[in-house]
Amino acid sequence: MTTSQIRAFYLALRAYRGYPETALCLRLISLTACRPGEAADAEWSEFDFEAKVWRRPAEKMKARRDHISPLSEQALKALEQLRPISAEGRYLFPHRSGEGFTTPNRLTYAMRDMNLGPRTSPPVALFSTAYAAEDTQDQSAQPGTDTWITTKVKAELMATKGIPAEVDGLRHASDGRSFPH
């Protein structure tokens, strides 16, 4: 997503009139840079509100390692808004049938309903290669593609903005250093 698409996303999200938990899920994705599937199957037990972190267990992660993401004040506020809707259950975003968790397709449909364009993906695109191209002049990235930025590229972008990788919960810096989990 380009800067103007990101701005349009947030404006459309404020005006979204669908299920409130869907809007909160999209907001959480944009605030944590998690994948849509990670948000969809997030469980309340994974969140430590005192430590302000989201601990995703290794069995849920592609790399098969625990992943810890810090939670901003905005992310914590979104979670507080979600509590009255789903805190009684296991999942933040339960499936409407009451069985299991919601599907990432629901998020894609919501994005389509917001009229953000035919190839708009859920807001992990804030960290997409299209955004990387804007910041790094990488001409190989095409706006609107579904290709995600790698952890290393994200770390490089953050470094150019003076943000240490460990602040974002990344476990790899642009120079290859790893941070403990």
Rank of each mutant, 00 (worst) to 15 (best):
F47R: 04
E59L: 03
A125Y: 02
T2D: 14
L13G: 06
Q74D: 14
I85F: 13
P164S: 04
T160D: 09
G169E: 03
R7W: 07
T129D: 04
P70E: 12
R90C: 02
I6S: 14
D138F: 07
P70F: 10
P118Q: 12
R55S: 09
A23C: 04
S174V: 09
S45L: 01
A159R: 06
R17L: 03
L24W: 12
R171F: 02
A15G: 04
Y10G: 05
L28P: 01
I68Q: 10
G98K: 14
R27I: 03
R35E: 08
A130G: 15
Y19R: 15
E73A: 12
F49N: 08
H67I: 04
E59T: 02
H95C: 12
F47T: 12
K52L: 00
D113E: 10
D48S: 10
R90H: 08
A141Q: 13
T160R: 14
K60I: 00
K152F: 01
R112T: 01
Y109Q: 05
G98R: 11
Y19T: 06
H67V: 02
R83E: 15
L170P: 01
A78I: 00
Q139D: 08
E43F: 02
E99A: 07
A51H: 08
R17N: 10
F127L: 13
R90F: 02
V153F: 00
A12D: 05
L24N: 13
E43V: 00
T147S: 12
E134Q: 12
M114C: 03
F93A: 04
G89H: 11
S178D: 05
L79E: 09
C25M: 15
E134I: 04
T150P: 05
P104C: 03
P122T: 07
E43Q: 15
T108L: 11
Q74N: 14
I163W: 08
T22E: 03
R64A: 13
A58I: 07
T147I: 14
L107N: 06
T103E: 06
E88P: 01
A15N: 10
A42P: 05
G162N: 09
Q81C: 08
A23M: 07
L157M: 15
A155I: 03
A39L: 08
R64G: 05
K52M: 00
R56T: 01
K161H: 12
E88V: 08
E38I: 02
R56E: 00
K152V: 10
K161T: 02
A141P: 08
A42E: 04
L82C: 13
A173W: 03
F127E: 05
S128W: 10
G144Y: 07
L82V: 06
D175L: 01
P20T: 08
T103H: 11
Q5R: 10
F47C: 07
L24S: 12
M1P: 04
T32M: 11
V53F: 11
M114G: 04
F47W: 12
Y109T: 06
A173Y: 01
R106F: 00
